[in-house]
C-alpha cells in the first residue's frame, strides 16, 4: 500500500501536468480538477515535510505541520492571487510560521521518546541516535531565539536559501535578512555552547 500509493503518484499516466507550474496546478485544483491535488502533493509535500523536520527535529510534529501547511494551500486555492507570489515561496513562509509557533510552545525539556526516533538514512542506530540528539538540540536552541531570527536562520542555514529569496519569503529587506541571520546564528551558538560535550563535539576529532 505504501509503495503502491507513492508509485502511482510518480507514474500518473499521460501526464498533462508535467510542465505546468505549481500555480497552474493550484488553479486547476481550485477549478475542480481531481488530479491536480495529487500532482501538487507529489511536488510540494517532500520539501514541506523536510523543512518542518529540520526545524522541529521531531517526526510526528513535522508531519502535523506538513499536513497543516498543505491544508492551508488547499484552502487558499480558490482565492489564490495569480502572479503575486510563487507557491513555493508562500509555502516556505507558512511552514516557517507554523514551526516557530510550535517551537514557542515547546518546553525546554523534550520528552525522551522523541529522542528515540531515528531519522531516515541513519548509518547505524548509535550514530542515528547521536544525529537525532544533535538535531533535537539544534531545534531546541532555535526555540530559544526570537521568532524572526529563528525563521531567518533556518531558511538560510537549514534550507540553504539565498538572502534575496529569504527576503521575499519573510517580506523584509535583504539587509534585514543579513542582520537577522547574523544575530540569530550568534544567539544559537551561545545557546548551544554549553552542550558541546553532550552532543559529541568535545574532542578534537571530527564527529
Amino acid at each position: 500500500m505504501a509503495i503502491g500509493l507513492a508509485h502511482s503518484l510518480m507514474t500518473l499516466p499521460s501526464d498533462p501536468f508535467a510542465d505546468a507550474s505549481d500555480e497552474a496546478l493550484l488553479v486547476a485544483y481550485a477549478n475542480g480538477d481531481r488530479q491536480a491535488a495529487a500532482h501538487l502533493t507529489a511536488r510540494l509535500l517532500p520539501r514541506v515535510l523536510g523543512q518542518a523536520t529540520r526545524m522541529l527535529a521531531h517526526a510526528a510534529e513535522a508531519e502535523d505541520v506538513a499536513q497543516d501547511a498543505m491544508m492551508r494551500l488547499w484552502k487558499i486555492a480558490p482565492v489564490w492571487r495569480q502572479g503575486e507570489a510563487q507557491v513555493s515561496t508562500w509555502l516556505y513562509r507558512v511552514v516557517a510560521n507554523l514551526c516557530t509557533d510550535r517551537l514557542r510552545k515547546r518546553g525546554r525539556a523534550m520528552p525522551l521518546d522523541q529522542v528515540a526516533e531515528p531519522m531516515d538514512g541513519a548509518p547505524s542506530a548509535l550514530a542515528g541516535m547521536q544525529t537525532q540528539m544533535r538535531m533535537t538540540a539544534l531545534s531546541d536552541a532555535l526555540s530559544q531565539l526570537p521568532e524572526r531570527q529563528a525563521q531567518a536562520v533556518s531558511l538560510r542555514h537549514l534550507e540553504g536559501l539565498a538572502n534575496p529569496e529569504i527576503a521575499q519569503i519573510m517580506d523584509i529587506s535583504v539587509r534585514s535578512v543579513e542582520s537577522l541571520t547574523a544575530r540569530g546564528k550568534r544567539a544559537l551558538a551561545n545557546v548551544l555552547a554549553g552542550r558541546k560535550a553532550e552532543l559529541g563535539y568535545d574532542d578534537d576529532e571530527p564527529e
Binding site: A2, I3, G50, G121
Partner: peptide, 13 residues
C-alpha cells in the same frame, strides 16, 4: 540538518 531528507510516508500523503 540539511543532509537529512525525509520522504513523506504513505499515511501522511
Amino acid at each position: 540538518a540539511r543532509a537529512g531528507a525525509r520522504t513523506p510516508g504513505d499515511d501522511l500523503t
